[in-house]
Deep mutational scan, measured.
Amino acid sequence: MTSCHIAEEHIQKVAIFGGTHGNELTGVFLVKHWLENGAEIQRTGLEVKPFITNPRAVKKCTRYIDCDLNRIFDLENLGKKMSEDLPYEVRRAQEINHLFGPKDSEDSYDIIFDLHNTTSNMGCTLILEDSRNNFLIQMFHYIKTSLAPLPCYVYLIEHPSLKYATTRSIAKYPVGIEVGPQPQGVLRADILDQMRKMIKHALDFIHHFNEGKEFPPCAIEVYKIIEKVDYPRDENGEIAAIIHPNLQDQDWKPLHPGDPMFLTLDGKTIPLGGDCTVYPVFVNEAAYYEKKEAFAKTTKLTLNAKSIRCCLH
């Protein structure tokens, strides 16, 4: 018999989150649709729960009410004593943790798909938090293969000092899905179709896995975050240069030392320094102006996964 890495157990509980950011409308629209008619997301033997994560922000069509829901799922915020004085999103995070967690427990949901849009030209993107997770690498390989020839990129946010504390991190297997470009507060049919297909293929993978299909060893190309880059700023902290036209919409493309990065209003080009080629992502993302992030630098690498098969009882 072929030796293989056996994944822990079959997958039982899956959640699909929309509206973690209330103005990213593809996930909101799909989740609302699936709450009314969820036939397309159901798979035999699998509990799939669509869920609106930040209903107040969705109602106002804004990213958040008090603070970013997708950055506060750490033990400090989840452990705060519940009171009306807490920011709305912290209270909501505790409610979500109660419903789908608790985080880092045996009772937490197996998989959470968190649906997002970006204003950046990132196409279909899967966000991975753990480079050693054979199950998710296999799932992402399946999704990428199923979507081809449509490109699907994998963004690895594993980093020693950049801690995200994402909404989906309460699950055993957290999956971020990011599709763009799409303006905030807008629905685009092409973007919706791409996100819908990503979810379909992900659920198909889980179904095949649960039925005992063995997935042979595989490898995927990923883009691992190195650092986030702020806009150049003046002495008052105001933005002093904008994304250069040569960099705009060039997510995932190589940016070499000396290539144009920013452009000042008086026409001066600010190039990339250093001696390493990087791959920019979230270029000129609207939501990241407040976070002082013009783009993120990534490096390209390959992740390998062992063969996996479900432990059938």
Rank of each mutant, 00 (worst) to 15 (best):
D251I: 01
N97K: 08
D251G: 02
T299D: 13
Q194F: 09
V283G: 03
R63A: 10
S131L: 06
R168T: 12
N37G: 07
F205A: 02
T264D: 08
Q94T: 15
L301M: 09
M82Q: 13
G22S: 14
D204T: 02
E129K: 05
L30H: 01
P174S: 11
A287Q: 15
K13M: 04
G123L: 03
P217W: 04
N77W: 12
K228R: 15
L69K: 06
G38N: 11
A286D: 04
V278Q: 04
D114N: 05
T44E: 11
I206N: 00
E235S: 12
Y142K: 00
K103S: 08
C276A: 15
E40S: 04
I308G: 02
D104R: 09
E8I: 15
N134H: 11
D74M: 10
P257L: 04
A7C: 14
I199H: 01
C276Q: 14
T62R: 11
F205D: 00
I112K: 01
K200P: 00
E290Q: 09
V281L: 07
F209R: 01
F262T: 02
I112Q: 02
E238H: 12
I52R: 00
T118I: 07
P217R: 06
T166R: 14
K291C: 10
A171N: 03
E293H: 10
H256Q: 13
H201E: 06
F29T: 14
G79R: 06
R91H: 09
E9S: 12
R71S: 11
C310W: 10
M82S: 09
K268L: 10
Q12K: 14
D68A: 05
K80R: 13
M195P: 01
H313K: 10
I52E: 04
L30N: 01
L192N: 04
I270C: 05
K200M: 08
D193Q: 10
E293Y: 12
E221N: 06
Y231T: 03
T119M: 01
S131A: 15
T145I: 13
K13H: 10
H5L: 12
G274C: 04
P260K: 04
R196S: 06
E40G: 03
E158P: 07
N70T: 11
K49E: 08
A165V: 09
M82V: 15
I220W: 00
R309S: 11
N77D: 14
H207R: 10
D74Y: 08
L301R: 09
T53H: 05
P257A: 06
P50H: 02
E129W: 09
F215N: 02
G212V: 00
V283E: 01
D85S: 10
L86N: 14
L115P: 01
H116N: 07
L75D: 12
V28P: 09
K228M: 15
L69Y: 07
Q12P: 05
T125N: 05
I143H: 00
F17P: 02
M122A: 12
E95P: 05
K291F: 08
P216Y: 05
S161K: 11
D266R: 09
I308N: 00
D130A: 04
F140Q: 02
N23F: 03
K228E: 11
N304H: 12
D259N: 09
A57I: 05
E285L: 03
I225S: 14
L86A: 11
S131M: 10
T119G: 00
L46W: 05
V283C: 12
Y142A: 04
A148M: 13
G38A: 15
M261N: 03
Y88R: 06
I177P: 02
H98D: 12
I239W: 03
R196I: 03
L75P: 11
T62E: 15
K291N: 14
N304K: 10
A241P: 02
E24C: 14
A165L: 10
E36G: 07
S3Y: 07
G18L: 02
K59Y: 08
K297I: 14
I191N: 03
P50E: 00
L126K: 00
G237S: 07
I191R: 05
K49S: 14
Y279N: 04
P174L: 11
K224D: 05
T53F: 04
D249P: 01
L203E: 02
L75Q: 11
L99F: 14
T298C: 11
S146C: 14
I206M: 04
Y279R: 01
L247F: 05
E285T: 09
Y173V: 11
I16N: 00
D130S: 09
F140N: 00
E84C: 11
D85P: 06
L115D: 02
N284R: 02
D204L: 02
K81E: 14
I143Y: 01
G79E: 12
L150V: 12
A241D: 02
L69T: 06
F113L: 09
I137K: 06
D193K: 09
C4E: 12
L263T: 07
G27S: 10
H116P: 00
I170D: 02
V58Y: 10
F29W: 14
I308Y: 03
T299H: 08
T26I: 02
D204I: 00
L75A: 11
H33T: 15
K297C: 15
C67P: 06
K292L: 10
G22V: 08
G101Q: 06
T264I: 03
D230N: 12
I220H: 00
E238Y: 06
Y153C: 15
L115Y: 02
Y155R: 15
K103H: 15
P151S: 11
N23E: 05
N54Y: 04
E84Q: 10
F100R: 05
D114I: 03
V281M: 10
S108C: 13
T277G: 04
N133K: 04
